[in-house]
Design a protein around this nucleic acid. Structure first.
Lengths: 336, 336
DNA sequence: CTGAAAGCGCTTACAG
DNA sequence: CTGAAAGCGCTTACAG
């Protein structure tokens, strides 16, 4: 490993001068700068980031909070996986690397971030948990963004879920449906999406003078197919007069498809269905699932921009909403 | 941030003694060790990893090579996403953190790994590329594992793809199929899986005295649905007398489903199909896709074990094969 | 414009 | 069993 001392010796300048030349800091004769840079190149110099971090407290590392406990999808989530991937691209382009933050060894997320001297943190998927876990990040003033759920004091980039819920309900209504069920994801987690989608759903009903029927609301115990299968089963045993169901996420819709297959229900003839997320499977299932595509690329782009802004000391908004695109496929039947 | 000097002052011992106590190194009076640990705890001491890395050259960081350029799935790959997730869990349990390695800024993967002083590297998905890119890792002696493809000199944990190809062909044959097509993934990449699966496929044909028909072999231009759609179309325009197709990966099978839907072909009545990977969509499509499940958890477990072994200076095998499980669903028709 | 000095927080021989 | 000294590779005031 070649160090700045090696370059200093070779060029005849001092280590601080080499440092300034390589970093473009301080005032330097442009000739000596050129020379140093050239020699450094020839020698194949690579800075030692640990040394730099130790003296500057800047690591060029961004901590990622991504933990799918309770979701059991690993990195296969249709929204989060894309957000992670694109955020990584953008932030690497700006010279930062991504390191995963965890809660192991009695370290909290915050302690872990300190241990690694990260320059900022992105909350993509904190699993279920307690929002107060993030208070230390807020108090510390560390640059931080969330692409998952609203936190007071954390710049959050998130889909307009309420609008999504509204559009879904409105679509059903315009296709002639009146008895529309709502299959919710668990509302006890850290994500506010289920509530927001429900709020929009109710608002549309109200606007179209359709009363919200509590009996047509059902909540899955988990964010998965199995939970949805059971929840929908409960709903269907209770009531058979509804013609449509809005699922707060595609994963839940998959449970409905499974139930329909086992129970001999025809989709969308017997029940129309709309999901949320545009999972890769949607366009493969029969009928192809009508859904919403969250703008993961835009969410990630804005997240990285907001991260960089904060690192630069610039102010950022509390919340940025991104539109989710309605994708009409084949799972909603028109009722005359 | 409290440092070992703060603890030294408070306890009356020197910094080196504190260091030894906290790390459990050297010979220390167990009383002073206890005391130091207790005070450190009370003071909420967290080691500064940059300082430690600088003096020990050990970062407790493992570099991850994961780049899906050309695949365009982000982290949504049915095998890689699970491998990444489980490997992360295991390696974090051993006290290591994961950082993504990239090829930005004229840095090669290897240079990036030096820059971050990683203790080891896992190659999960290097995108298409040149195997020689990894020569530096091998020469350097850095601990390294691959869960993607075979590299001489890198401990690789990978499915028994040849066996998979064999079992697929044999299954078709036992169901009465004789004219069996093979839809391959691109073979120009770094992954050896397509060739291995093809080799097993051919072997089964030979064992059952069925000649391999070159005209029934077709290669997709990309690892995606669209490429498969086009490739299968070419095949189908050329020959209509085959009754089954083995797709080297589920993604390719999706392209066949799409083609079948557009062309009005019935699955599995007109064409039987087997995929590979057990993508989450498989059990949702009609007909549910018969496929193979790679043992991603086992692959990741072994990968982390092999990584840890290398870090500990222990020898590791060149290659570990894991069985892929055959999952029979509904996409293969029995021919009388 | 350039460099000597000190410091970031830790660990590793080496003395005592 | 414990500590003084030096070093890991870099940067930041501060002098000149």
């Amino acid at each position: 490993m070649v160090t700045i001392y090696d370059i200093a010796k070779k060029t005849g300048f001092s280590a601080p001068t080499v440092s300034k030349a390589l970093n473009g800091t301080g005032t330097l004769n442009s000739g000596t700068r050129q020379k140093i840079i050239q020699i450094a190149d020839e020698m194949g110099y690579k800075p030692n980031i640990s040394a730099r971090t130790l003296s500057t407290r800047k690591s060029n590392l961004i901590g990622v909070i991504y933990d799918d406990t309770g979701m059991n999808r690993g990195f296969a989530h249709p929204l989060f996986s894309v957000v992670l991937n694109r955020f990584r691209e953008q932030i690497e382009f700006a010279g930062y690397d991504l390191v995963f933050l965890s809660r192991h060894f009695q370290m909290s997320y915050y302690e872990h971030s300190q241990y690694r001297s990260v320059d900022g943190v992105i909350i993509i998927n904190p699993a279920t948990g307690d929002k107060s876990e993030f208070d230390e990040f807020i108090e510390s003033g560390m640059p931080r963004v969330s692409t998952n759920s609203l936190f007071d004091g954390i710049c959050t980039i998130i889909s307009d879920n309420e609008k999504g819920g509204y559009v879904a309900a409105e679509h059903f209504i315009k296709k002639g449906h009146k008895k529309i069920a709502f299959l919710s994801a668990p509302r006890n987690g850290i994500s506010t999406a289920p509530q927001e989608r429900l709020a929009g759903f109710k608002k549309a009903l109200t606007d179209y003078n359709i009363p919200f029927d509590e009996e047509l609301f059902v909540e899955s115990r988990f964010w998965d197919k199995q939970g949805a299968y059971e929840a929908f089963g409960k709903l269907y045993e209770r009531r058979k007069d509804f013609t449509a169901v809005f699922c707060a996420t595609d994963l839940l819709a998959f449970g409905v498809y499974e139930y329909a297959e086992k129970a001999g229900l025809k989709l969308p003839e017997d029940i129309s269905i709309i999901g949320f997320d545009d999972d890769a499977a949607d366009a493969l299932m029969s009928p192809h699932l009508t859904t919403f595509r969250q703008d993961a690329l835009r969410i990630a782009d804005i997240a990285s921009e907001m991260m960089l802004n904060q690192i630069a000391g610039l102010p950022v908004p509390d919340i940025v909403r991104c539109e989710a695109e309605f994708i009409e496929r084949q799972s909603v039947k028109e009722i005359k």
